[in-house]
Amino acid sequence: MIVGERKPFDEIKEMVQDHKKIMILGCGTCVAVCMAGGEKEVELLAAQMRLAAKLDGKNVEVMEDTVTRQCDREYIEPILEKARECDAVISMACGVGVQLLSDLIEEIPVYPALNTRFIGTNEVEGVWLERCMMCGDCVLGKTGGICPIAMCAKGLVNGPCGGTNKGKCEVSNEKDCAWTLIYRRLEKQGKLDNIREIFPPKKYGLHVNPIRQVNEAYLHAEMEEHHG
């Protein structure tokens, strides 16, 4: 999932200081699961905004809503009319949700309430770990399902380096050495020979912003349907 973290309250407050009618829009998918921008967090931020407005002697109307996914048009469309009645929207989605919402209501400013941090897993309750850097050239098939790009502090594709320390990383004792994890996993799978393979340098050119992906088969089928 995409992991986000709520911005400090003062930063959010400053962004919307000139607006009188604000909608706070949550997202019910990734950022809800990581307890940063779902329905509950919308309620909390709205309560804080109302209290702060009252303390500052300002008359600010704060509306609340949460959609299933802010990165899909079909989920945003039902709330557009309501959003257009506001001076501003605070989006509690990831950066993708903020941008799509802004594309759909261009004339109304959309402000981000979160910092979008990474894609990862929920380790234990309340803790998330980055697991994929979206490099576009996946090596997980060779590394026992553990990503050396995301999990190794140096992002080494040929490891471990000399900084591996009893299963931990020289950067921090709190970080596992990704290549030790990979070694142990390959050992369990009887595939330790994988570690002898020397990987060529990563193709970082695959990640040229913004990446666009096209499903040719789908587009072809669509065209056939329309033009016979």
């Binding site: 309250f9 003062d10 909390l44 309560a47 804080q48 209290l51 702060a52 303390l55």
Partner: peptide
């Protein structure tokens, strides 16, 4: 913490 962020003890 939420209250303190807003400015209430």
């Amino acid at each position: 913490k939420l209250l303190e962020e807003v400015g209430i003890e």
